[in-house]
Simulated assay, not measured.
Amino acid sequence: MPPRARAVRKWVFIFLVECREEIVQEVPKILNTLYSYMQQSTHRPFLLRAVFLLTRFHQEPVISSLLQKSLLMDSDTVELWRSLGRSILGIQILRCLVEKLNRAGNDRLGTDSSPCEQHSCQTALETLTITRAISEVVFALRSTEELRRLLPHLLPSLLRWASEMLGGERQLLLMTSWKQLHVEKPCRIFLSAIKLVLGKCMAQKWTQLLEIWGVWARLEVPVAHPEGVRLLTSVLLNAGVVSPCLVKNLLPWLNSCSVQLRMTATAFFAEVTITREEALLPWQWPNICLPSGSQRQKSSKQSGWSCRNSRHLSTPAVAPVHSLCGEAVQGARKRGLMRTGGSPGERSSLARVEYTCSF
Protein backbone atom coordinates (compact mmCIF):
# COMPACT_ATOMS: atom_id res chain seq x y z
CA MET A 1 0.00 0.00 0.00
CA PRO A 2 1.40 3.45 -0.93
CA PRO A 3 2.43 5.65 2.03
CA ARG A 4 -0.14 8.30 1.10
CA ALA A 5 -3.01 5.83 1.12
CA ARG A 6 -1.86 4.45 4.46
CA ALA A 7 -1.69 7.96 5.89
CA VAL A 8 -5.20 8.79 4.64
CA ARG A 9 -6.70 5.67 6.21
CA LYS A 10 -4.96 6.37 9.50
CA TRP A 11 -6.25 9.93 9.43
CA VAL A 12 -9.83 8.76 8.81
CA PHE A 13 -9.68 6.34 11.75
CA ILE A 14 -8.29 9.03 14.05
CA PHE A 15 -10.92 11.49 12.84
CA LEU A 16 -13.80 9.08 13.55
CA VAL A 17 -12.49 8.40 17.07
CA GLU A 18 -11.24 11.81 18.18
CA CYS A 19 -14.06 13.87 16.65
CA ARG A 20 -16.89 11.50 17.51
CA GLU A 21 -18.78 14.09 19.55
CA GLU A 22 -18.52 16.81 16.90
CA ILE A 23 -19.80 14.67 14.02
CA VAL A 24 -23.03 13.41 15.60
CA GLN A 25 -25.23 15.39 13.20
CA GLU A 26 -23.15 14.33 10.21
CA VAL A 27 -23.24 10.57 10.82
CA PRO A 28 -25.80 9.81 8.04
CA LYS A 29 -23.78 11.82 5.51
CA ILE A 30 -20.52 10.16 6.54
CA LEU A 31 -22.11 6.72 6.30
CA ASN A 32 -23.51 7.47 2.84
CA THR A 33 -20.07 8.63 1.70
CA LEU A 34 -18.43 5.45 2.95
CA TYR A 35 -21.20 3.39 1.35
CA SER A 36 -20.72 5.09 -2.03
CA TYR A 37 -17.09 3.90 -2.10
CA MET A 38 -18.06 0.29 -1.40
CA GLN A 39 -18.17 -0.38 -5.14
CA GLN A 40 -14.36 -0.21 -5.23
CA SER A 41 -13.26 -3.59 -3.97
CA THR A 42 -9.75 -2.42 -3.04
CA HIS A 43 -11.22 -0.16 -0.36
CA ARG A 44 -13.64 -2.64 1.20
CA PRO A 45 -11.58 -3.72 4.27
CA PHE A 46 -10.84 -0.08 5.07
CA LEU A 47 -14.46 1.00 4.58
CA LEU A 48 -15.83 -1.86 6.70
CA ARG A 49 -13.43 -0.88 9.47
CA ALA A 50 -14.51 2.75 9.19
CA VAL A 51 -18.20 1.78 9.40
CA PHE A 52 -17.40 -0.33 12.46
CA LEU A 53 -15.77 2.63 14.21
CA LEU A 54 -18.65 4.89 13.25
CA THR A 55 -21.13 2.33 14.65
CA ARG A 56 -19.14 1.89 17.83
CA PHE A 57 -19.69 5.52 18.83
CA HIS A 58 -22.97 6.22 17.00
CA GLN A 59 -24.87 2.96 16.96
CA GLU A 60 -28.43 4.30 16.71
CA PRO A 61 -27.81 6.78 13.83
CA VAL A 62 -25.85 4.21 11.82
CA ILE A 63 -28.48 1.49 12.20
CA SER A 64 -31.29 3.91 11.34
CA SER A 65 -29.40 5.08 8.25
CA LEU A 66 -28.75 1.52 7.08
CA LEU A 67 -32.42 0.70 7.51
CA GLN A 68 -33.29 3.57 5.17
CA LYS A 69 -31.77 1.59 2.32
CA SER A 70 -34.12 -0.16 -0.04
CA LEU A 71 -35.89 -3.34 1.06
CA LEU A 72 -34.04 -4.90 -1.88
CA MET A 73 -30.67 -5.19 -0.15
CA ASP A 74 -27.76 -5.08 -2.54
CA SER A 75 -24.55 -7.00 -1.89
CA ASP A 76 -22.90 -3.97 -0.28
CA THR A 77 -25.69 -3.50 2.28
CA VAL A 78 -25.67 -7.22 3.05
CA GLU A 79 -21.91 -7.13 3.57
CA LEU A 80 -22.22 -4.16 5.92
CA TRP A 81 -24.81 -5.90 8.09
CA ARG A 82 -22.80 -9.14 8.16
CA SER A 83 -19.56 -7.35 9.01
CA LEU A 84 -21.31 -5.68 11.95
CA GLY A 85 -22.73 -9.06 12.97
CA ARG A 86 -19.27 -10.63 12.99
CA SER A 87 -17.80 -7.81 15.06
CA ILE A 88 -17.79 -7.46 18.83
CA LEU A 89 -20.82 -5.20 18.40
CA GLY A 90 -22.87 -7.99 16.82
CA ILE A 91 -25.14 -8.79 19.76
CA GLN A 92 -25.61 -5.08 20.52
CA ILE A 93 -26.65 -4.45 16.91
CA LEU A 94 -29.08 -7.36 17.09
CA ARG A 95 -30.56 -6.13 20.36
CA CYS A 96 -31.10 -2.68 18.85
CA LEU A 97 -32.84 -4.19 15.81
CA VAL A 98 -35.10 -6.27 18.06
CA GLU A 99 -36.11 -3.15 19.97
CA LYS A 100 -36.94 -1.40 16.71
CA LEU A 101 -39.01 -4.36 15.57
CA ASN A 102 -40.88 -4.34 18.91
CA ARG A 103 -41.65 -0.64 18.59
CA ALA A 104 -42.89 -0.89 15.01
CA GLY A 105 -46.68 -0.58 14.91
CA ASN A 106 -47.04 -0.61 18.70
CA ASP A 107 -49.94 1.81 18.44
CA ARG A 108 -51.88 -1.05 16.86
CA LEU A 109 -51.01 -3.55 19.58
CA GLY A 110 -53.02 -2.01 22.39
CA THR A 111 -55.15 -3.94 24.80
CA ASP A 112 -58.32 -1.99 24.22
CA SER A 113 -61.41 -3.70 22.93
CA SER A 114 -61.64 -1.67 19.72
CA PRO A 115 -60.71 -3.59 16.57
CA CYS A 116 -57.30 -2.93 15.08
CA GLU A 117 -56.98 -1.36 11.66
CA GLN A 118 -54.92 -2.95 8.93
CA HIS A 119 -51.21 -2.23 9.21
CA SER A 120 -50.14 0.41 6.77
CA CYS A 121 -47.79 -0.42 3.93
CA GLN A 122 -45.19 1.79 5.56
CA THR A 123 -45.27 -0.25 8.77
CA ALA A 124 -45.19 -3.48 6.79
CA LEU A 125 -42.14 -2.42 4.81
CA GLU A 126 -40.44 -1.16 7.98
CA THR A 127 -40.83 -4.49 9.74
CA LEU A 128 -39.76 -6.41 6.65
CA THR A 129 -36.61 -4.29 6.30
CA ILE A 130 -35.70 -4.71 9.98
CA THR A 131 -36.28 -8.45 9.76
CA ARG A 132 -34.01 -8.80 6.73
CA ALA A 133 -31.32 -6.91 8.64
CA ILE A 134 -31.82 -9.22 11.64
CA SER A 135 -31.38 -12.25 9.38
CA GLU A 136 -28.06 -10.96 8.04
CA VAL A 137 -26.74 -10.12 11.51
CA VAL A 138 -27.80 -13.50 12.94
CA PHE A 139 -26.23 -15.28 9.96
CA ALA A 140 -22.85 -13.74 10.78
CA LEU A 141 -23.17 -13.73 14.56
CA ARG A 142 -20.45 -15.70 16.32
CA SER A 143 -21.83 -15.96 19.84
CA THR A 144 -24.69 -18.47 19.94
CA GLU A 145 -24.84 -18.21 23.74
CA GLU A 146 -25.68 -14.50 23.54
CA LEU A 147 -28.28 -15.28 20.88
CA ARG A 148 -29.94 -17.84 23.17
CA ARG A 149 -30.19 -15.24 25.93
CA LEU A 150 -31.84 -12.83 23.51
CA LEU A 151 -34.25 -15.48 22.16
CA PRO A 152 -37.11 -14.72 24.63
CA HIS A 153 -37.30 -11.24 23.11
CA LEU A 154 -36.34 -12.00 19.53
CA LEU A 155 -38.68 -14.95 18.93
CA PRO A 156 -41.89 -13.15 20.03
CA SER A 157 -41.01 -10.17 17.83
CA LEU A 158 -40.58 -12.29 14.72
CA LEU A 159 -43.53 -14.57 15.50
CA ARG A 160 -45.74 -11.56 16.12
CA TRP A 161 -45.18 -10.13 12.66
CA ALA A 162 -45.32 -13.53 10.99
CA SER A 163 -48.81 -13.85 12.49
CA GLU A 164 -49.83 -10.28 11.69
CA MET A 165 -48.73 -10.58 8.06
CA LEU A 166 -50.79 -13.68 7.34
CA GLY A 167 -52.81 -12.95 4.21
CA GLY A 168 -51.18 -9.53 3.86
CA GLU A 169 -50.13 -9.97 0.24
CA ARG A 170 -52.81 -7.68 -1.15
CA GLN A 171 -51.73 -4.53 0.66
CA LEU A 172 -48.16 -4.91 -0.65
CA LEU A 173 -49.07 -6.09 -4.13
CA LEU A 174 -48.99 -2.61 -5.68
CA MET A 175 -45.57 -1.69 -4.27
CA THR A 176 -42.70 -1.99 -6.73
CA SER A 177 -40.08 -2.84 -4.08
CA TRP A 178 -42.22 -5.72 -2.86
CA LYS A 179 -42.78 -7.13 -6.35
CA GLN A 180 -39.05 -7.20 -7.02
CA LEU A 181 -38.46 -9.40 -3.96
CA HIS A 182 -40.16 -12.32 -5.73
CA VAL A 183 -41.62 -13.52 -2.41
CA GLU A 184 -45.22 -14.68 -2.57
CA LYS A 185 -46.07 -14.16 1.10
CA PRO A 186 -44.68 -11.44 3.40
CA CYS A 187 -44.90 -13.74 6.44
CA ARG A 188 -42.34 -16.00 4.76
CA ILE A 189 -39.57 -13.44 5.44
CA PHE A 190 -40.31 -13.51 9.18
CA LEU A 191 -40.55 -17.30 9.22
CA SER A 192 -37.20 -17.57 7.43
CA ALA A 193 -35.67 -15.39 10.14
CA ILE A 194 -37.20 -17.58 12.86
CA LYS A 195 -35.86 -20.67 11.13
CA LEU A 196 -32.37 -19.14 10.98
CA VAL A 197 -32.45 -18.09 14.64
CA LEU A 198 -33.67 -21.48 15.88
CA GLY A 199 -31.07 -23.20 13.72
CA LYS A 200 -28.41 -21.49 15.83
CA CYS A 201 -30.14 -21.92 19.18
CA MET A 202 -31.19 -25.58 18.94
CA ALA A 203 -29.54 -28.85 18.03
CA GLN A 204 -29.93 -30.12 14.49
CA LYS A 205 -32.25 -32.93 15.60
CA TRP A 206 -34.89 -30.39 16.64
CA THR A 207 -34.67 -28.30 13.49
CA GLN A 208 -34.92 -31.52 11.50
CA LEU A 209 -38.07 -32.43 13.40
CA LEU A 210 -39.61 -29.07 12.46
CA GLU A 211 -39.02 -29.93 8.80
CA ILE A 212 -40.47 -33.43 9.16
CA TRP A 213 -43.66 -32.10 10.72
CA GLY A 214 -44.02 -29.41 8.07
CA VAL A 215 -44.15 -26.63 10.66
CA TRP A 216 -42.97 -23.84 8.35
CA ALA A 217 -45.52 -24.68 5.67
CA ARG A 218 -48.30 -24.66 8.25
CA LEU A 219 -47.25 -21.35 9.78
CA GLU A 220 -47.67 -19.44 6.51
CA VAL A 221 -51.24 -20.66 5.90
CA PRO A 222 -53.89 -18.79 7.93
CA VAL A 223 -56.08 -21.87 8.47
CA ALA A 224 -53.16 -24.10 9.52
CA HIS A 225 -51.26 -21.41 11.45
CA PRO A 226 -52.54 -22.39 14.94
CA GLU A 227 -51.56 -26.02 14.35
CA GLY A 228 -48.14 -24.84 13.18
CA VAL A 229 -47.74 -22.82 16.39
CA ARG A 230 -48.62 -25.87 18.47
CA LEU A 231 -46.09 -28.04 16.69
CA LEU A 232 -43.45 -25.33 16.97
CA THR A 233 -44.16 -24.92 20.68
CA SER A 234 -43.88 -28.66 21.25
CA VAL A 235 -40.39 -28.73 19.75
CA LEU A 236 -39.32 -25.57 21.59
CA LEU A 237 -40.42 -27.07 24.90
CA ASN A 238 -38.46 -30.24 24.44
CA ALA A 239 -35.43 -28.37 23.13
CA GLY A 240 -35.41 -26.44 26.39
CA VAL A 241 -35.67 -22.95 24.91
CA VAL A 242 -39.05 -21.96 26.40
CA SER A 243 -38.13 -19.75 29.34
CA PRO A 244 -40.21 -17.80 31.89
CA CYS A 245 -39.25 -14.62 30.07
CA LEU A 246 -40.62 -15.99 26.79
CA VAL A 247 -43.91 -16.95 28.46
CA LYS A 248 -44.14 -13.52 30.05
CA ASN A 249 -43.61 -11.79 26.70
CA LEU A 250 -46.33 -13.86 25.01
CA LEU A 251 -48.94 -13.60 27.76
CA PRO A 252 -50.24 -10.09 26.80
CA TRP A 253 -51.15 -11.46 23.36
CA LEU A 254 -54.09 -13.30 24.93
CA ASN A 255 -55.83 -9.94 25.30
CA SER A 256 -54.49 -8.24 22.17
CA CYS A 257 -56.84 -6.38 19.85
CA SER A 258 -55.31 -8.41 17.03
CA VAL A 259 -57.18 -11.61 16.25
CA GLN A 260 -54.04 -13.17 14.79
CA LEU A 261 -52.03 -12.57 17.96
CA ARG A 262 -54.81 -13.91 20.18
CA MET A 263 -54.99 -17.12 18.14
CA THR A 264 -51.20 -17.48 18.13
CA ALA A 265 -50.96 -17.01 21.90
CA THR A 266 -53.89 -19.36 22.51
CA ALA A 267 -52.23 -22.08 20.45
CA PHE A 268 -48.93 -21.55 22.27
CA PHE A 269 -50.36 -21.75 25.78
CA ALA A 270 -52.68 -24.62 24.90
CA GLU A 271 -49.64 -26.66 23.84
CA VAL A 272 -47.53 -25.62 26.83
CA THR A 273 -50.14 -26.74 29.33
CA ILE A 274 -50.73 -30.23 27.98
CA THR A 275 -50.11 -32.71 30.81
CA ARG A 276 -50.46 -35.99 28.98
CA GLU A 277 -47.19 -36.87 27.26
CA GLU A 278 -47.32 -39.24 24.31
CA ALA A 279 -44.50 -41.41 23.02
CA LEU A 280 -43.05 -41.00 19.56
CA LEU A 281 -42.80 -43.68 16.96
CA PRO A 282 -39.23 -44.87 16.42
CA TRP A 283 -38.96 -43.12 13.08
CA GLN A 284 -40.07 -39.84 14.66
CA TRP A 285 -37.21 -39.61 17.14
CA PRO A 286 -34.93 -36.81 15.98
CA ASN A 287 -31.66 -38.45 17.07
CA ILE A 288 -31.81 -41.55 14.86
CA CYS A 289 -31.49 -42.19 11.16
CA LEU A 290 -34.81 -41.42 9.50
CA PRO A 291 -36.20 -43.75 6.80
CA SER A 292 -37.59 -42.52 3.53
CA GLY A 293 -40.89 -40.66 3.33
CA SER A 294 -42.79 -43.70 1.98
CA GLN A 295 -41.52 -45.86 4.84
CA ARG A 296 -42.53 -43.23 7.40
CA GLN A 297 -45.99 -43.02 5.86
CA LYS A 298 -46.36 -46.80 5.86
CA SER A 299 -45.23 -47.06 9.47
CA SER A 300 -47.65 -44.31 10.46
CA LYS A 301 -50.62 -46.01 8.76
CA GLN A 302 -49.85 -49.42 10.26
CA SER A 303 -49.66 -48.08 13.79
CA GLY A 304 -52.56 -45.66 13.49
CA TRP A 305 -50.40 -42.77 14.68
CA SER A 306 -49.72 -39.47 13.00
CA CYS A 307 -47.64 -36.40 13.58
CA ARG A 308 -50.74 -34.70 14.92
CA ASN A 309 -51.34 -37.08 17.81
CA SER A 310 -47.76 -38.07 18.55
CA ARG A 311 -45.97 -34.76 18.63
CA HIS A 312 -45.51 -34.49 22.40
CA LEU A 313 -42.04 -35.60 23.38
CA SER A 314 -41.38 -37.07 26.78
CA THR A 315 -38.65 -34.96 28.33
CA PRO A 316 -38.19 -33.21 31.71
CA ALA A 317 -38.17 -29.81 29.96
CA VAL A 318 -41.97 -29.60 29.98
CA ALA A 319 -42.55 -29.78 33.75
CA PRO A 320 -41.15 -26.41 34.91
CA VAL A 321 -42.79 -24.55 32.06
CA HIS A 322 -46.12 -26.23 32.78
CA SER A 323 -45.90 -24.99 36.37
CA LEU A 324 -45.01 -21.51 35.17
CA CYS A 325 -47.87 -21.50 32.67
CA GLY A 326 -50.30 -22.42 35.44
CA GLU A 327 -49.23 -19.31 37.34
CA ALA A 328 -49.51 -17.26 34.16
CA VAL A 329 -53.08 -18.44 33.55
CA GLN A 330 -54.04 -17.64 37.13
CA GLY A 331 -52.67 -14.14 36.66
CA ALA A 332 -54.47 -13.85 33.35
CA ARG A 333 -57.74 -14.90 34.97
CA LYS A 334 -57.35 -12.18 37.63
CA ARG A 335 -56.76 -9.54 34.96
CA GLY A 336 -59.73 -10.71 32.93
CA LEU A 337 -57.68 -12.11 30.06
CA MET A 338 -59.74 -15.31 30.00
CA ARG A 339 -62.60 -13.39 28.50
CA THR A 340 -65.66 -14.73 26.77
CA GLY A 341 -65.81 -12.14 24.03
CA GLY A 342 -63.56 -14.00 21.61
CA SER A 343 -64.45 -16.39 18.85
CA PRO A 344 -65.70 -19.92 19.70
CA GLY A 345 -62.31 -21.32 18.75
CA GLU A 346 -60.54 -18.91 21.08
CA ARG A 347 -62.90 -19.62 23.98
CA SER A 348 -62.50 -23.37 23.48
CA SER A 349 -58.70 -23.19 23.41
CA LEU A 350 -58.56 -20.82 26.36
CA ALA A 351 -60.83 -23.15 28.32
CA ARG A 352 -58.44 -25.97 27.47
CA VAL A 353 -55.54 -23.92 28.85
CA GLU A 354 -57.41 -23.26 32.08
CA TYR A 355 -58.51 -26.88 32.42
CA THR A 356 -55.10 -28.46 31.89
CA CYS A 357 -53.48 -26.04 34.36
CA SER A 358 -55.81 -27.24 37.09
CA PHE A 359 -54.06 -30.63 37.39
Rank of each mutant, 00 (worst) to 15 (best):
I14M: 02
I14S: 10
V17A: 09
V17R: 12
E21N: 11
V24G: 00
Q25D: 15
T33Y: 04
L34P: 02
Y35C: 00
M38H: 05
Q39P: 00
S41P: 00
H43L: 15
A50K: 11
V51F: 05
F52N: 04
L53G: 02
T55C: 14
S65G: 11
S70H: 03
V78H: 02
L80Y: 06
W81P: 01
G85P: 02
S87G: 09
S87A: 11
L94I: 15
E99A: 10
N102D: 10
D112L: 07
Q118V: 06
A124N: 04
T129M: 10
I130Y: 06
R132Q: 10
A133L: 10
V138M: 07
L141G: 12
L150A: 14
P156Q: 07
P156T: 04
M165I: 04
M165N: 12
L166V: 11
L166G: 03
L181I: 07
V183T: 12
L196F: 04
Q204M: 08
Q204C: 08
W206Y: 10
Q208G: 11
E211L: 12
V221K: 05
P222M: 07
V223C: 10
P226N: 11
T233A: 13
G240V: 10
P244F: 12
L251R: 11
P252R: 03
L254A: 03
V259M: 15
R262D: 12
A265Y: 01
T266G: 12
A270M: 08
T273C: 15
E277I: 08
L280S: 03
P282F: 03
W283G: 03
Q284V: 13
W285Y: 14
Q297M: 01
S300Q: 14
S300T: 15
W305S: 13
R308V: 15
N309Q: 14
A317I: 01
A317Q: 14
P320M: 08
Q330E: 13
A332N: 09
G342D: 06
F359C: 15
